[in-house]
């Protein structure tokens, strides 16, 4: 997994609540058997007309935000299905950090498995960051995972929380499966116990 340490980049504002995974990546793009190449279809129905032409109003189609690396959004971001295609599409587009007042659990979890940092902050803070993001391409935000700080384009600093284990994995780019494999003796022992206590399972 790609490491995440510090990121300085353009933040795109998307001030909608309940942005669901069907909006992030509609189902017709779930038919792939690959993880890559989904970025062009990120927010597909909001981003393109039916004929494939771009909707100029949509934030990621505006010249200032085409290279956005941070997304600032409304509450309950990523609700809906468990499709990991959502974080894959976000990552493939080039966004490495999503900031919102709250996230749906599965999406939140899926982000960490893909080198994306989701940050939940109080609504008032997100409002300030949203304003900062609205300034366009010159307004670069810095997200520093090590120090758990976001710095706005005008130098305001906000602290954020992150689970220590997830932070460690993200900063080192660690693969969960490899870590768990090291616990194979524990799993073996558990399965032995299970076979004795609940053989039907």
């Amino acid at each position: 997994m790609e490491k995440f340490t510090t990121l300085t980049g353009i933040a795109a504002p998307l001030p909608l609540v309940n942005i669901d995974t069907d909006m992030i990546i509609p189902k017709q793009f779930l038919k792939t058997i690959k993880r890559s190449g989904l970025g062009v279809n990120l927010f597909d129905e909001m981003r393109y007309e039916r004929d494939g032409s771009e909707k100029p109003d949509f934030v990621l189609n505006q010249p200032a935000y085409r290279d956005a690396e941070v997304l600032v959004a409304g509450e309950n971001f990523g609700c809906g299905s468990s499709r990991e295609h959502a974080p894959w599409a976000i990552k493939d587009f080039g966004i490495r950090c999503v900031i919102a007042p709250s996230f749906a659990d599965i999406f939140f979890n899926n982000c960490f498995k893909n080198g994306i940092l989701p940050i939940a902050l109080p609504q008032e803070t997100v409002d300030i960051l949203m304003k900062d993001a609205e300034k366009g391409a010159n307004a670069r935000m810095t997200v520093d995972l090590e120090n758990q700080q976001i710095t706005t384009s005008d130098g305001q600093i906000f602290a954020f929380d992150v689970d220590p284990f997830r932070k460690h994995c993200l900063m080192e780019g660690l693969d969960d499966i490899g870590l768990t494999m090291e616990r194979a003796p524990d799993i073996d022992a558990y399965e032995k116990r299970l076979a004795a206590e609940r053989p039907w399972a």
């Binding site: 993880r35 299905s81 468990s82 499709r83 990991e84 974080p87 599965i106 979890n109 899926n110 498995k113 893909n114 969960d176 499966i177 768990t180």
Partner: peptide, 9 residues
């Protein structure tokens, strides 16, 4: 529900 990385896990 789990994501695909967790399916693999």
């Amino acid at each position: 529900g789990i994501g695909t990385s967790e399916v693999e896990h």
